[in-house]
Design a protein around this nucleic acid. Sequence first.
DNA 1: ACACAAATGTAATGTTATAACATTTCATCC
DNA 2: GGATGAAATGTTATAACATTACATTTGTGT
Lengths: 157, 157
Amino acid sequence: MKHTLNKNKQEILQAAQKQCLKHDLRFTSKRSNVLQLMLHENKPLSAYDIMADYKTQYNQSISAVSVYRMLDFLIHAQLVHKLASSSQYIVCSHITCHHAHETPQLLICDTCHQVEEIGIGTLLTSELEANIAATGFKLQHQQLELHGVCSSCQKLH
Amino acid sequence: MKHTLNKNKQEILQAAQKQCLKHDLRFTSKRSNVLQLMLHENKPLSAYDIMADYKTQYNQSISAVSVYRMLDFLIHAQLVHKLASSSQYIVCSHITCHHAHETPQLLICDTCHQVEEIGIGTLLTSELEANIAATGFKLQHQQLELHGVCSSCQKLH
DNA sequence: ACACAAATGTAATGTTATAACATTTCATCC
DNA sequence: GGATGAAATGTTATAACATTACATTTGTGT
Ligand SMILES: [Zn+2]
Ligand SMILES: [Zn+2]
Ligand SMILES: [Zn+2]
Ligand SMILES: [Zn+2]
């Protein structure tokens, strides 16, 4: 089951606002609007998709630069993740979770393009880290993007 | 020590050619030239970097489209990897290895931008796979890109 | 009200990647 | 060796993604 679907949008928005306040970040109405439309779409969007959506949903033009700046903000606030492999953006699935945000691990379905964000165990993470530390490299892995086919798409064979 | 530095370029080129012949792929002179200059630079390059380099090194203009096509070819031939997180391209470190190519795992230094390609054990890979399979997702992870700081850069603290 | 910093707007441009169609190169068959 | 067809490469244009530089507006604290 999708993590984001467990909680309603209102709850997520409030948690996002709270999270921003806690870190002295301004959760402006435009930033909120962007997060809301991303929640509403519930799929990876490009910056230009968001720009177009914003225009449609709020009947107000917004520039690409502004979208990128808002995305930057939301990413730093850990409310949004960037999918490097597709240059798209998606709302974090753990906004309403109380635990600290781990290394995001994103399962990207190459068939339907839905993304599921999971948390593999810290055990596995530290194992990976140890394995790599042996080469002298110091990991800071911001994110793991894993491609494959989701369970729904598998059923449709 | 860097894997690519263990073998000389000539050996890598010959292995690349052999690998292409085996799979009925044409290792043309331009494709060879692109691979050679990538080997020579020994660092991640953008398609447009390669275009400029080609002009300089071979005194012959080449279009961006051609570079992208050659990169596509080289990627399919498993001679080159694309770094999604930086939209750059790098020669595979395992061209002269005899074993089949595993899921590439790229350690990207965020300080000096050098890339080290390793092979974490199949044990860890299958563990990761099992962990994710539990969610119903079928992995096809083409590649793992891990960011951090390499050992040289750590020494320079 | 004033001063300052943060957010957003505007315009231009840079960077990465692909589409559509023309031409050249090269292996194969006769 | 010339015809044939597929693969490679060239050419032109444009789409898609992202940033720089500078102006204006908004919001906060005094
Ligand atoms: Zn997240
Ligand atoms: Zn799917
Ligand atoms: Zn490789
Ligand atoms: Zn380094």
